[in-house]
Design a protein around this nucleic acid. Structure first.
Lengths: 258, 258
DNA sequence: CGACGCATTGATTGGATTCAACTAAGGTGG
DNA sequence: CCACCTTAGTTGAATCCAATCAATGCGTCG
């Protein structure tokens, strides 16, 4: 867990929050506002809870497989990934964590991690003690519901990944992940019209969709050739949103439980 | 949603609960007892909540993709599967639902399903209104925590499936699913020493691990030839638990959050 | 008995991996 | 400032796992 002091050079939250003043203002709150019961009261509670912020450098582990959960994090800027190393040493990325995401969402104080969380870019997080986080959930039913809502959204994403990995071709799998990332980033204001910072390597994409780096490369080339996307200097642009969604069989509804 | 009257010929809960007296006694409660905060009080609450029981026949849908969630079910006996039909018409089984499992766990009353739940066998369920379920969770923090715990366990299973589908060979994938089912059935008393009712077709296994029926058949044959499992009349026996777990890179820890 | 669902087998095809080499970009230190 | 090294991306050829297509066996149930 290497902590660093400089500020992030990758994804930054929009100006308002870029100051990294302690408190989990912008991306998380923007996300939770999608949940109808979330109110000002909850917001205040959150800001008290996530009272310290810190930064992690690229490739550092925020949480390791097997760790006891002692802190809960909100990602303020940058990208992380849940991952698991399997027996033969290869890595599966289980999900991407984007600004506004909370992890690990273990309701019950302690508990061992069954996977790790790594920083894919330098990133900024706010943290709360797991115990005070849980106390807050017990005291404030609405807050608890808001986080349950977030957990359900998370589960929806996981189910979509199972479907993606189980049924779709390499080409469609990559397309689907791109659609998901775009939709999720849009929810926190980090994608404009299908255009967003895309700070991951092809190896990381490959680990997420269950294929080799070489193949991920060829698939991305094909997506570009087919005029569906464009990637320039770590910035991805969706050129044909309808085409990409149809190809990926993507429907964003699952990202927004009621 | 076809309702039937006869009793199940497949998985039966152990005698105590086989009476299908309304109330979600045995498998759910046995499972939730694994959660340390679950107490008698919660138990009573549950029994009042899930106050009606019914049966579904094999191949019927308990919930359909796109449905509004109006009821919450506990599976009392039999097996179900969450599934999703993708664009080209093929089906991915997202998870197996076993006795004691609750679904759909949407905390917030209504909400649209992004997948369906089908009965793989004739099965018996207890149901509660989504609204009263949610009220109960709001009133009883401990009960809410118990269900959050169950949700976390669920998420752990989903993550394990992502890893399984993404990284492992067909042979190991099937092995892993068998290990998971055994461990989960053991938690509700439905597996004895690696021996349990296995009422699914090879097509269903194939749909769960993302391969064709033909290939699932060959993999199962190989697992039998290698002396790892035995299947006789819908009953599976794990002959070499250590061998199977090692092969599958299986560690049951993820099934039991704290 | 015939029909149907499920399991099984064989032959062929093809998508993705593997192995290996090479290019391009960026950072570091002499 | 350039030589060197590292990381990320790209390309080609050979190989292999799993899909596909097609047919058959087998048991159950109406």
């Amino acid at each position: 867990m290497t902590k660093i002091d400089e500020s992030s050079t990758y994804e930054r939250p929009p100006p308002a929050a870029a100051t990294s003043k302690p408190g989990a203002e912008s991306p998380l709150i923007r996300k939770l506002r999608n949940f109808r019961l979330f109110d000002r009261n909850c917001e205040r509670e959150l800001q008290q809870l996530f009272d310290r912020s810190s930064e992690f450098e690229r490739h550092s582990d925020l949480v390791r497989d097997g760790d006891e959960v002692q802190q809960v994090f909100v990602l303020l800027s940058g990208w992380c990934a849940r991952y698991k190393i399997v027996g033969d040493g290869s890595r599966q990325i289980i999900s991407f964590l984007l600004p506004g995401d909370v992890f690990p969402l273990h309701a019950t104080t302690t508990g061992q991690m069954d996977h790790g969380v790594a920083a894919l870019t330098r990133c900024e997080v706010a943290a709360a003690d797991a115990s005070s986080f849980n106390n807050a959930l017990l005291r404030k039913a609405k807050l608890a519901q808001a986080f349950w809502w977030a957990t359900l959204a998370d589960k929806g994403v996981l189910r979509a990944w199972v479907v993606n990995l189980g049924q779709r071709s390499a080409y469609c799998r990559v397309a689907h992940v791109i659609c998901e990332l775009n939709a999720r980033l849009q929810m926190v204001g980090l994608s404009n019209n299908g255009c967003f910072q895309f700070p991951v390597t092809q190896e990381e994409i490959a680990d997420a969709v269950g294929m080799t780096t070489v193949h991920a490369n060829r698939i991305l080339q094909q997506l570009r050739q087919d005029g569906l996307i464009k990637i320039e200097q770590k910035r991805l642009t969706i050129l044909d949103a309808d085409g990409l969604c149809e190809l990926a069989d993507f429907n964003s509804a699952y990202l927004n439980p009621v």
